[in-house]
Structures are given as C-alpha cells and as structure tokens.
Computed example of a mutant assay.
Amino acid sequence: MKRRSLLTVASAATVMTLGGVGYAAHRRGTNPYYRGPVSDHFDGVRFHGPEQGADKDLSDVLRWQVSRKGEAWPRQFPSPYPADRPPERVAGLRIVLIGHASYLVQVAGRNILIDPVLSKRASPVGFAGPRRVNPPGIALSDLPPIDAVLVTHNHYDHLDGPSLARIWQAHQPLVIAPLGNDAILRGYDDTMHVETRDWGGSVDLGDGLAVHLTPANHWSARGLNDRRMALWCAFVLTSPWGVHYHVGDTGLGDGRLFREVRERFGPPRLATLPIGAYEPRWFMQAQHMNPEDAVTALGLLEAEQALGHHWGTFRLTDEGVERPAEALGAALDGAGHPREKFLALRPGQVWPG
C-alpha cells in the first residue's frame, strides 16, 4: 500500500508538471493571478489560445495513466558535454542548453536566462515527480551576471520558483513573463522585479535588444483549480545579431503561429524549438510538438538554424529518452534538410560550438 501510494503521488506530480490538472471543473470564479479587461483570448477568468481545444478531464488523465506502456528511462543519462563555464559577456551570440527547456542566451553584451530550472525535480513537491537524469549544463555558481530572465509559462518544468528566487537574490535581473505570472513569481520572493506583457507586447532592453511575446498553443496550471488563469507565450528576441524565436511548449496546430512570426519579424536566424514530451499523441498533440511537427515549424518559419530542447532531462511522457533525437534526424532526412540545420542539444552544449 505504501508503494502504491508513493507511485500515485509521483504520477500526480508528473501530471501537474505538464499542466494536466484543473480539468473542466471550476469554470466560474475569480482569477487569483490576474484581473484585466476581457479580450479575444481572455474571458475575465481564463485565457485561451487561438486554437484552444477542450480541456482534458480527469477521465482522460486516468485513461493515460492506467494504460501507460511507455519506454523506461535510465536513472542517469549524462550529457557528453562538460558543464559550461560561460564568459562574462559576449558581443555576438552564444547559447548553451542548461537542460530540458532552460537556456543561457548571451547576445549583444547581455545575459538572458530562459525558463531556468535547476532543481532536482520538475514538480510541486520535492519528494516525487519527474527527476532530472543529468545535472544542469551550467552550475548556478558559474552563471555570468544575469540581466534578464524570460519565463514562458508556469508549468513546473518551466517555472522553477526556488531556482528563480536564488537567481534573483544573486543577480537582481529583470524577469519578463506573460500576464498573471508576476503573482506566482513574487510568491517566491516578493521583491522580485517582474514585468508582464500580453501577447503582442514587448520589453525594450536597450542597445537594440528587445523581447516580444507571441502566442503558443499551450496552457497553464500551477495547482488543481487554476488552469489557464495565467497566460503562456513564446518569445522573439530582436537584437543587432538578428531574430531569435524561442518556444517553450506548443502544439503545431495549423501552423499559423509560425507563419505569423515569420511575417512580423522575418525569417529567424535562429529558432529554439521543443522536440520532446509528445507520446501518447492522442493526449499530447494539441500542446506538444513531436520532432516531425518541429521540422514542419522550421519550414514554416524559414529559419536559418534550429536547436531542439525539451527532451532528455525529465521524463514527462511515454517516449524513450533518446527517441526525440532519433526521430528528429529521421524527420530532417524526410524533409530534405541537412541534419546540422536542426540540432538536438544536450546539457552543457554550446552553440555555435
């Protein structure tokens, strides 16, 4: 009974990490994070995306959990790259994958963290839920001075409150997030400097560097009753180096999100796209691209280069630990792209390398 209880807690923590709680219940009520005018994607309580499907309900989650036949992961999946020790500043562009969807972006003399998750688990609890199978690609103590932190959404594998509080206390960066996430972030340190924006909003970081928030086919949830009460986004960074488009999580949908980025900003020089957490497709397709979808997105964007993340660190879904990278190679071959055009990064790997 004790083992079953622990497995139940671990399973629940995994589902919560993915935002798979909240369901269709608690439709009415108040939003604890954000109060603002109704818009084409906010009904006064909840946000919704341009292609928002029906919320999964408890029966969907139970169906997945009861019938899971996923491929087991190893307890350790070490990166072939040593932990990075970044330079203090970079004039051009230097990117390193910290792990999962966490990056350090050094561009135009600024240091920007995206979705920094440095904890041992991506979970609301420290004793259960997805456990990292490789250490962060940069140790917290080896980070250069951090000027800004970008948070795409509030799922636990993207918004790691304890890590963000430590980064804030050490570096005092500007934190940029979609609407409603400031209330969550300040719950970890009420002195944190957070600026929120809606889709279409921008933050000017000076010297030709700006951050723009764009839509994604995803959702948010931090607990049992707050589904879609904080906004989620993708980011576009514009700088003297060029356009860098970053997606934390999204479904491909009909592709309009990627076409709109290309039309507004031009073809990106770089796109950092998720390639993992996609099985089973009946459950994940609306919110997580698989590698074939990501290659389609690359084509829609007409991006010069892509880097793949959201794989190989936390086991969230049913595919094996190496399957996303293998499937990415096959998808690139099928689309006629050279494999070096879209690299599946490992923690500590630097681009350009």
Rank of each mutant, 00 (worst) to 15 (best):
V15K: 11
H48K: 02
G19I: 09
L97I: 01
R27P: 15
G36M: 08
W73V: 01
R131L: 01
P86R: 11
W73A: 05
G109W: 09
K56L: 14
P82A: 14
H26N: 15
R131D: 00
H41D: 13
G49A: 11
A24V: 08
Q76Y: 08
V117M: 09
L7C: 13
L113S: 03
N111L: 06
G126W: 08
P136A: 09
S5H: 13
I98W: 00
S39R: 07
G109S: 11
D115Y: 05
I138K: 12
P32C: 15
V133S: 07
D55F: 09
A101R: 14
R35T: 08
T30V: 10
W73G: 01
I138H: 13
L140Q: 04
K69A: 14
P124E: 05
D43T: 01
Y23S: 05
I98V: 06
A12M: 07
V38D: 06
S59W: 07
A54K: 10
V15G: 12
P135D: 14
S67D: 06
P136R: 11
K69S: 15
V21N: 12
S102W: 05
P50H: 00
P50I: 00
P82F: 14
D115C: 13
P86H: 06
P37K: 13
P82Q: 15
R46L: 00
V90Y: 06
V15R: 07
H26V: 13
R85E: 07
S119L: 04
F127M: 09
G36K: 04
R132D: 03
L58V: 02
F47G: 05
N31I: 04
N111S: 11
A12D: 02
G109T: 08
D43H: 05
T8H: 13
V107L: 10
G126T: 03
P82R: 11
R94E: 00
V96P: 01
I95D: 02
G29I: 04
E51M: 05
E51N: 07
L62E: 01
N134Y: 08
I98Q: 01
P74V: 01
S11E: 11
